[in-house]
Nucleic acid binder design. Sequence first.
DNA 1: TAGTTATTGTTATAATATAACATAGTGTAA
DNA 2: TTACACTATGTTATATTATAACAATAACTA
Lengths: 130, 130
Amino acid sequence: MHKEHSLTKNQQIIFDLIDKSTEPLKAYSILFNVQKKGIKAPLQVYRALDKLVEIGKIHKIESRNAFIACHNSSCQVAKATAFSICEICEKVTEISSAGLSKYLANFKDKDGMKYSKYNLEFFGLCKKCR
Amino acid sequence: MHKEHSLTKNQQIIFDLIDKSTEPLKAYSILFNVQKKGIKAPLQVYRALDKLVEIGKIHKIESRNAFIACHNSSCQVAKATAFSICEICEKVTEISSAGLSKYLANFKDKDGMKYSKYNLEFFGLCKKCR
DNA sequence: TAGTTATTGTTATAATATAACATAGTGTAA
DNA sequence: TTACACTATGTTATATTATAACAATAACTA
Ligand SMILES: [Zn+2]
Ligand SMILES: [Zn+2]
Ligand SMILES: [Zn+2]
Ligand SMILES: [Zn+2]
């Protein structure tokens, strides 16, 4: 399973930070928070983020340039992601819906093209903000 | 219909450029291309882009930080967008599928939350690149 | 025509991300 | 164990994307 990669030191530090955060974190906010652990340069952060995304431990929320940990065991290594985003409080939740992922995984466009990967971001108001 | 907004000078210049492009354009590439028409600063470009996105004449491809003109009359003013993106040649096409948009517009998550907006980006290989 | 709003112009700066190069660790196979 | 390949790290500099702040104009509207 994709969760079993052994992380390097920097990857682990940065993953831990993202994993315990209740909100998506931005790269430079991560940088600020790990400087006391010896990670001093943006590139160190971005390299760890790239790897963590690649192995599916975190996802990038493209519309926000921010990163969250994956808590969705059915999510296929960064290949099929769906999120709900509250436009007021910016709360982001990974959507885990068998129906949705099945529908999208099987979606074919007019030319019969099938896709190897997708990212879906829903926007609305969360419970609290309604 | 949403296409009937009358554009201001800068908006028109920038829309024309995007509209006649065969590929998504990035903000600073747009800036470079309209400097001869008197648009000299990033902000002038970003302001026009914001407005054009808001009224649905163009869409932002979030994963690419690039903009394409909307050629999809059924697309509801930037509220419901879907694209296919070729990971080799970077060709981007707006997907116009009644089935897909119906499915997503009606999608409710576990909490019964309905969304006012979504953006979906599919990735794969286009015909030419396969 | 005065008041209001949207748009523009301009300079500066913030925020996000990568290039390039040097060094160090890790696994593997002769 | 040594050479090799491969990955990760550290570091400086720079590229790319986007917004803040303020002044001036144009367009709308009561
Ligand atoms: Zn996930
Ligand atoms: Zn909320
Ligand atoms: Zn459209
Ligand atoms: Zn292609």
